[in-house]
Design a protein around this nucleic acid. Structure first.
Lengths: 128, 128
DNA sequence: CACCTGCTTCGACACCCGTCAACATAGACA
DNA sequence: TGTCTATGTTGACGGGTGTCGAAGCAGGTG
């Protein structure tokens, strides 16, 4: 069944502290473990269909969207469901059923974590 | 450790020379074309070995590293070469042969573009 | 209650991808 | 020149992945 234990990279006990997933890419060579964790996220976004779905949810009003509203990405609906499941398993989305429709919502902390992973000290090189 | 402000990553070029990849993920639903472009990058980083190689190059002193210095990632050397080629094809790395050794170097603009792609205005959802 | 709609799961297919051993190439050095 | 080291390329294998049609659930509506 659908359990989907997600969030491989977030410690849910500290909602305020953003995912201590990994250091910035440019700071230190990743260890095997860090690479495995981070690659899982990148891999989830490494498909055009998933990227469109994720972007559609992330940019949707209120930060959430029902499947019926984002499933126009050029593939069949089972495939859409499959990709949404993948995104959920990667910890990037969460789903909730409300009545007839299922709503997906982005996990903001993960987005922040990935952003920090890439925005290394480059743009903020102000630390002597 | 040290130092390093060595990251000549961004300071040397105009901010406008950055790859015109895509808008932030949370700004607008990606078009098929944008998704294809961005997914290519994410996919390139969606492998643990490639992520370690990329991180090793990006964090190496001077922003570049020779293969002999980063090929300790647990796979055979042909595989390392294969992954480096993939990263090069994705536009994330550039290579240059100097004498006996081949040096790889990160493409700073791409890193910046990916960072901006994720560092959306996360003040987005959840405002009601 | 029956039916209908929205979404997920199942089974199957083709294709892509990561991996390695073996071979090929480029430059250095004697 | 020949040989040795450092990388890249080729070919092949096994497993993973995206895709679809059909079937299965869940919930609303008549």
């Amino acid at each position: 069944m659908s359990n989907t234990q997600a969030l491989p990279l977030l410690e849910s006990d500290a909602p305020e502290a953003v995912a201590p997933c990994c250091p910035p890419l440019t700071e230190r060579p990743f260890t095997a473990e860090e690479a495995e964790t981070a690659a899982r996220m990148f891999k989830a976004l490494g498909d055009p269909v998933r990227l469109r779905l994720f972007s559609a949810v992330a940019s949707h009003e209120g930060g959430e969207a029902c499947v019926c509203d984002i499933s126009d990405v050029g593939v069949s609906q089972p495939t859409v469901s499959h990709h949404l499941k993948k995104l959920k398993e990667a910890g990037l989305l969460t789903s909730e059923r409300r009545g007839t429709w299922v709503y997906y919502r982005v996990e903001p902390s993960v987005l922040t974590a990935m952003g920090k992973l890439l925005t290394s000290g480059m743009s903020v090189a102000g630390s002597p």
